[in-house]
Design a protein around this nucleic acid. Structure first.
Length: 293
DNA sequence: GGTAGACCTGGACGC
DNA sequence: GCGTCCAGGTCTACC
């Protein structure tokens, strides 16, 4: 089944896919040109499905297989709208970017949307797996979680969805460490999974909350393992770009751009983009950085 | 509020 | 092949 989902223009699916490294983390998959995105997802009914997103004029074509119930199809559609932020209007950002040479390309490339996972739980766990490690290890840890604990796809059991909170909540720390090789992150993942599975933590509420960004940041940082970098990363995914996810790469690039490669702190990174206000994170994210020296 | 050290893995490097 | 060093954010304890 194929269905066209419109987006608030301008919209280019490849720009969303390549907005950050999420497309490299399973169960996400892309074609060679990174123009088509696929994922495997466990729906509320328990059914595990694969769906594909193909580029279309100012929108995307959602491709599904099998006989889906109406509620299942609606769930997928709503998730795709969320993952690609189809309804969001980025024109205020583009207007401001016009006057900045380092952001000249954002409008033509329709940059601004940042690829999200089908669930905030998946986004948070993956963000946890990016902390204090190299990207190759993030990919490996994610693959381990998906392969070991995710529900298999019915017509191809070698492929899996991302594990649901309740699937991780029943594990123990030693198993997670030994099998998934997530190291000291194991208790953080378990605590999160247990909190979500038990209903103590309502992540869906965080998606739609009207809390001021500062309050939302504080709330995210109450999750064990989520510090300033991870909270800023999650805020970006939640559509709040008032903070910059300052990691070692950010420190390096900002230092190179404005501080002659001298050692700097996160304060200098935030200061470098302070004039962008609520678009600080977007300006940083899509900045046309000079190649690292 | 700021700082130091521990946490854990795997890649790079030297022997 | 083995041992050592290092990178990567967040935590807790301490000042």
């Amino acid at each position: 089944m194929e269905n066209y989902l419109p987006a608030k223009p301008p919209f280019l699916l490849p720009s969303v896919i390549q907005s950050h490294g999420w497309f490299m983390l399973p169960p996400f998959e892309t074609d060679e040109k990174k123009e088509i995105l696929s994922t495997i997802d466990r729906l509320k009914t328990g059914r595990v499905v694969e769906y594909h997103l193909q580029p279309a004029e100012n929108g995307v074509i959602l491709v599904t297989a099998g006989n889906l119930e109406q509620e299942e199809y609606e769930e997928i559609t709503n998730k795709v709208k969320w993952m690609l932020d189809l309804d969001r209007d980025f024109s205020p950002f583009y207007q401001r970017a016009q006057s900045e040479p380092k952001l000249q390309r954002v409008t033509a490339r329709a940059q601004g949307r940042i690829l999200r996972c089908p669930s905030l739980f998946e986004d948070i766990v993956k963000t946890l797996l990016t902390t204090n490690t190299l990207w190759a290890a993030t990919i490996r840890m994610t693959k381990n979680l998906v392969t070991l604990y995710g529900s298999p796809l019915a017509d191809n059991p070698s492929r899996h969805a991302f594990p649901a909170p309740e699937q991780l909540a029943v594990l123990d720390e030693a198993t997670l460490r030994a099998d998934a090789r997530v190291g000291y992150r194991a208790p953080f993942i378990l605590l999160l999974a247990q909190a979500v599975a038990s209903g103590a933590l309502d992540l869906e509420a965080l998606r739609v909350t009207e809390l001021p960004t500062l309050q939302l940041r504080k709330q995210l940082m109450t999750i064990k393992g989520i510090g300033p970098y991870a909270a800023a990363n999650l805020l970006m995914l939640l559509g709040r770009s008032d903070y910059i996810p300052v990691d070692s790469w950010a420190l390096k690039m900002v230092s190179q751009e404005w501080h002659a490669n001298a050692p700097i702190t996160p304060v200098e990174v935030e200061a470098a983009f302070a004039r962008w206000g609520e678009y600080k994170g977007l300006a940083y994210w899509f900045w046309d950085w000079a190649k690292p020296g």
